[in-house]
Structures are given as C-alpha cells and as structure tokens.
C-alpha cells in the first residue's frame, strides 16, 4: 500500500499552466480594451497618445494622459477588487459548504456598508477619510453579520437554499436600515451614497493599497491552508479524522473572507455576484480544488469585475452602477444555480 511513490503528473501540470496562462491572457486583453472606453470619449489615437506620454514619464502632461491615468487606476482597482471578491466568495462557499454563498447575497457587504454609513453619520467629522476607519468600520460591520449568519446556519443545518434565503433577508434588512439612515441626513451622506453606489468610479491609490494589503495577507494564508481546507470541504468528521482542527479552519476561512469583503467595500462600495461567479467559472477550467484553482478564481473575479465595469461605463449616457450590471447577469445565474442545487439534493 505504501509502495507507490507520488509521481508528478506532467499532464495535469501542462493543463494547469495552459489554463492559468490562458485566463491571465484574457484578463490582459480585457483590461487593454477597457483603457479605450469611458465617458470622456477619447478616440483610440488619443488614448494611445496619452499612454505614450505616461510611459515617457509625463503622466500629467496633457488632459489625455490624465484621463488615461485615471482609467488605469480604475482598471487596476477593478482587477484587485475582483480578485479579492473572487477569493472571498470561494472562502465563504467553502466555509458554509454552500455554492450559493456570496458576501453581497448573505449581507456581509451590506453590514460593512451600514457600518461605514453609521461612522459617517455619528463619527467625528472627517473620520471617514481616515484609512484606519475606512478599514475598521466595514470589517466590524461584516464580522457582526458573519456572527448572525453563523447562528442562522446552526439553526438551519444543511439546507443550502434556506440559508441563502435567510442571508438575502438579512441583506434586505441592512439595506433598509442604510436607506433610512441616508434619508435622514442627505447632506452628510451624499458622499457615502456615491461611494456605495458607483463602484469603481471613486478609484484611488489608497483604495488600491487597502485591497492589495488584504490580498497580500490573505493569499499566502489560504495557500498554506489548502490541505485542511479541502478536508473540511468533505465534512467535519472526515476532516477531524485526518487531524484537522475543524473549528479553527472554519473560523479562519470565514474571517479571511470577511476581511477581504470589507476591504472591497472600503475601496469600491458594495459589489455583488463577483464572489458567486468566480469559483464557478474557475471550476469550468479545472476540476481539482488546489492552488491553481484558487489563482484561477481570483483571475476570474478580476475579469468579471473589469468586464462589468466596462459595461457599466459604456452602455448608457451616464454611468450605471457596477453592482447593477453584475446583478443583471448574476440574478438569472443564481436562479439557474438554485434549480440545479435542488436537483442535486
């Protein structure tokens, strides 16, 4: 039984390399196309001119270069937020063993958004601008919702759809509270509304740094957790029988997921469905739940958000919120998933 040595499977590795390079190439092409679209209405040659100026070291030289710079920051943030949402969604789906989990659908993002609004409303003037508050408030809100979800999931057990429904209800309640708060003080909160509504159009270097920091912490931890994570996915008894601390694994996965979702809300407001989509899209390309799968999930998240944002700012006269664009595709997909999961059960 112990005589067989693990053989590196060359075919699997070739396949993994091919899908990783392919997906990264698609993301690169999509970001490339994205630079040429936007509300400023630059012609392709103007964009190229701006790019040349930037590469030449004069980013603020002309209006073209300035616009191109803004677009690059926005796309860069889109890539980071997408990767982060994808990873967050994968962790949430794993921790709850529920392919329907997503930080937006379950109210985690809503809780983060509400917390930011509360700080803006009752906090000391100017605190929203502070980076520390920008991270701490959504994190606290997200963790509070997570605690509620844990209580709910303990009561519901393994009914995936009932759990999703409870999460959706929670999400609606948080949104209602948010709307009421906004209506009481439109003057103070107008900036918060825009933040929450518009997605990536408030892109900034600070936002990119916040999301990047979250990923820099989360990715190595997740990569080192693959063994317990996969064992946990099979079941509590299965994992515990292999020496995995089930409680610690579950809490760690959830905590990292919420940290990522909180940094995303801090940088770009509530963006739904990217966390739901990404692991499923990655699953189309690879069947093993390994490190390749995790990287693919992040690449898919980045692609989904960049494409969504491209649609958001080119489909209409004025910009459509990113969350609206993703909901347009996400909602029918969720319905299809629900039908499918019902059939599997």
């Amino acid at each position: 039984m112990s005589s067989v040595l693990p053989v590196p499977d060359a075919e699997v590795r070739r396949h993994d390399a091919a899908v990783l390079v392919g997906t990264a190439a698609v993301l690169l092409v999509v970001t490339g196309i994205s630079v040429f679209f936007g509300s400023a209405g630059l012609t392709p040659s103007e964009v190229l001119h701006g790019l040349r100026l930037m590469i030449g070291g004069a980013p603020m030289g002309t209006p073209e270069a300035q616009i191109v710079m803004l677009r690059l920051v926005r796309i860069g943030l889109g890539v980071l937020v997408g990767a982060s949402l994808g990873l967050s969604g994968f962790l949430l789906q794993t921790a709850f063993r529920n392919p329907l989990a997503d930080s937006y659908l379950l109210g985690v993002s809503g809780g983060a958004q509400l917390a930011v609004t509360l700080v803006a409303l009752f906090g000391v003037a100017g605190t929203v601008a502070s980076v520390r508050v920008m991270i701490a408030a959504p994190l606290a809100g997200g963790l509070l919702v997570l605690a509620m979800l844990l209580i709910i999931s303990r009561r519901i057990g393994h009914d995936l759809l009932a759990f999703l429904l409870s999460g959706l209800a929670l999400s609606y309640m948080l949104n209602a509270l948010y709307s009421i708060l906004v209506s009481t003080r439109p003057d103070i909160l107008s900036s918060t509304i825009f933040w929450s509504w518009m997605g990536l159009n408030r892109a900034s270097g600070t936002g990119m740094a916040v999301v990047a920091a979250g990923l820099i912490v989360a990715v190595p931890v997740v990569m080192s957790l693959m063994r317990p994570l996969r064992s946990y996915l099979v079941g509590d008894d299965f994992a515990q029988n292999l020496g995995v601390n089930v409680r610690t694994t579950r809490i760690l996965l959830l905590f990292i997921s919420v940290v990522l979702a909180a940094t995303d809300v801090a940088a770009s407001g509530v963006v739904g469905f990217a966390g739901l989509f990404s692991p499923h899209l990655a699953r189309l390309l690879t069947r093993r739940t390994d490190r390749t799968f995790v990287v693919l999930t992040m690449l898919m998240g980045a692609t989904v958000v960049v494409v969504g944002d491209l649609i958001a700012r080119s489909v209409s006269v004025s910009e459509v919120p990113l969350n609206t664009v993703l909901s347009l595709f996400g909602a029918p997909y969720l319905i299809w998933l629900s039908i499918k999961s019902r059939r599997v059960m």
Binding site: M1, S2, V4, P6, V7, D9, R97, P99, R227, R230, S231, L233, V234, G235, D236, D237, F238, L242, R283, R287, R288, T289, V344
Partner: peptide, 22 residues
Amino acid sequence: EIPQAHILVDEVIELSSLGRLK
C-alpha cells in the same frame, strides 16, 4: 454522514492517504 461535497474522488484518496497516494 454522506459528504455531498463538490470535490474529486482522487482528492479524497490523496487527503486520506496523507499524501502517499495521488
């Protein structure tokens, strides 16, 4: 308990053999 997990049989074997079998 019946796992109902979306994970490959190969991976279950790999995990259970503590990495000896792939």
